[in-house]
Structure formats: C-alpha cells, structure tokens
Design a protein around this nucleic acid. Sequence first.
DNA 1: TACACTATACCGTCCAGCCGGTATAGTGAC
DNA 2: GTCACTATACCGGCTGGACGGTATAGTGTA
Lengths: 196, 196
Amino acid sequence: MPLDDSRYAGAVTTPSPTRDRLLDAFEALLIEQGEKAATLDAVAARAGVSKGGLLYHFGSKDALVDGQLARMAALATTDVENIRNAPAGPVDYLIRTSVNAGTPLDRAIIAAACLAQGTHPSANEAIAAMRAQWLAVIEEAVGDPDVAEAILLVSDGLYYNSALANPMPAEAHDPHSPESTQQMDRLLAVIAKLLK
Amino acid sequence: MPLDDSRYAGAVTTPSPTRDRLLDAFEALLIEQGEKAATLDAVAARAGVSKGGLLYHFGSKDALVDGQLARMAALATTDVENIRNAPAGPVDYLIRTSVNAGTPLDRAIIAAACLAQGTHPSANEAIAAMRAQWLAVIEEAVGDPDVAEAILLVSDGLYYNSALANPMPAEAHDPHSPESTQQMDRLLAVIAKLLK
DNA sequence: TACACTATACCGTCCAGCCGGTATAGTGAC
DNA sequence: GTCACTATACCGGCTGGACGGTATAGTGTA
C-alpha cells in the first residue's frame, strides 16, 4: 500500500532517508538540467530507487513537487532565524548567503524557481512567502522599508544571476574564493551607503 | 524547398510577418505557461499556422529558440542606445524599464529567462551578453564599477521578480499606475544615495 | 506478518520531426 | 500569350519515442 502523503504534511514524523534522497535527486535534476529533464524515471534512477519505489513515497509528480516545496519552507524558516541572529548583522548575512553556496536551502530555492517558471502556482506562493519573511527581517534591521526593499532586490539579483548563469554541476565559482569574497566586500561597502 | 535560415541570420532581409507571429506566439506561451507548454503544436496553433507551416520557417525547435534569442539581441542593442541617451539619465531609465511593462524587449527577456532555466546554453549566453552591455552603460554613467554592479543587481531583482511572481496574462500591475510610480520613485530615491 | 521496497510490463497521451501534397506567384522559352 | 517549370508558403497526417501513471509479482529485513 502506498504511503499516505498527509503523514509528511508537517515536519511531525521522521522522514525516511530514501524520501530525502528522492527530493535531493529531484532538485539536482531541476538545477542541472531543468524542469523537463526531471521526469519520474530520471529522479528515481538518480536516487538509486526504482520508479515503483518513488511512487511509493510520492504518489504522483504533484506530490513530489509539494514535498520539495515543503522541505524548502522548513529550511527557510530556520534560515530566517539565522539571518535575525547573525553576528555581522542581518544585511551582511543575507547578501553573503545570496550567492548560491550550494547549501540545501540554496539548492531548494533554485529548484523551486525552476518549478515556478513552469507556472506551478504553489511554487510561486512558496517563494513569495519566503521573500516576505526575508523582507520583514531586513526591514526590522534597517528601519526604512524602502531601503529594505532595495537590499532585498540586490539579494534577488544575486540569487537569480547565480542560478541562471550557472548551470554548472558544482562550485565552479566557490563563494569562499578570494575573488568572490573581495567582490562581496565591495558590494557590501556600496550597500552600506544606504544605511544612513 | 524549406527556407535557408541563414537568410535571416542578420537583419538584412525583410522577415516575413508569419515568422514574427510565430516568435510572438512562442514567447507568449513561454511567459504565460512555461517552457513545457511551448510545444511546436501549441506555438503553431497560437500563431494561426499549421505545424508544417511552423517547421517551414523554423526547421526544428532549436531553430525556433535561436530565432527568439536573435530577435531579443536585436531589440537589446537598440535598447542600450535608449539607455545611453535617456533624458532622465541611464540609471533612471534602466530601473524604470526593469519592471516588465510588456514591451517587446520585456517579453523577449522573460521568455529567454524561461529558456535559460531549461539549461539551453545559448539562452544563458544571450542574457549574459545583454547584461554585459547594460553594465557597461551604467558604469559609464556612474563612474564607480561597484556602484554600477549594485544598480544592475537591483534591476535584475526587479526583472526576475516581475517575471517569476507574475504568471498573469496581462498588465495586472500596470507600471503607469500611481502606486507603481510612487514605489519606483521611492526606490530611485534610495538608489540616489549610492551616487555620491 | 508487515514494511519498504525492486523489477517489469503495460496503457494512453503527448511531442518532435518528417513527408507528401497543395495553392499561388513568378520566370523564361517559344 | 501560354506552356513548362520553379520557388515560396504553407496544410495535415503520420511515426517513433518518451512520459505519467497503474499494476503486479516478488524480495529482504525486523
């Protein structure tokens, strides 16, 4: 008997490792080869699972999409806390983590952006909800809502640029490289002009 | 005998109206329903042409993509001149036209962004080339390359947000509405802080 | 015995690309 | 001027493959 999807609707029960492997494979295919390549067969193969095994965990492709978005939302919630409590300040943290370092959240967001273009409405909503959380934190930190919006737009620009201009498999441009760090420092210096 | 594509490689000869209608239909489907929905049948139907007619003008789906990107590049080249000679200044023009007003270039860019996610490498290159032109003009206008980059990132953020968060058919948020204009004015006021 | 799968086969649908045909407009020969 | 021929601009049907989803029989572990 297939799993009841509602079992995983929240983060209540312990998810199986296979389930997470399937979501990882789904995201990897979305990121590396686009939505069209992320077929059920391909996802199952990449996760080292049979197609039947995939459909055991996710009864349909829509369920797989929902699972991906739910996992992203969970990761985003903890990320917002990281932003709020960042030692160097929320703005510094937000901008520095906008450049796709290959973290699970980064991958989840880029994958969701792929789904959003496929006009999957729930993907759009999930992304919009995440952005709203970010905006709230930044606004809380900088005071001025217009400045907060501008900073978030820079963050968006960084994200979509690294997502689109980068169909490469791995860390082709490592965010910890000296060039990237210097570039980031200069960008943050420019942004600092906005804060009073 | 099918058309030789090289005939249209430049803007030398007069392109047929059907050819442009096909590209319009292709872009519309990409924007409104995503890459997956932009099938040859759907494009042909939307353009009011048979599938055979489409394949007469574009010998393959790749040729259709190439045609779309080539038209975008042509539009972008004239846009760069508009930016350079804008009465209110390049920065003002760039930011105000980053919000998807439904111009042919706007539509072309959003359609190309859809193609880029499908990991069509030529789409990535075409977008990168366009961005490089923009960056050059803005850098020329503001002097500081870091400030130019930050401004372009805001522009990118605006673009991708309006592209992704907006799978709506038409001008659901008209850029000439009072709210949009006010929001844009406030954003430009924030950006003005970066310029000296 | 139940759970978490594997492996295989199959169905209906959709899609890219191909092919034969058609209608029309134009060109050169006589 | 008209006949033979060519080029352009399509139409619409077909095929082979892929995809989502279903079904079923079987396996190993706890």
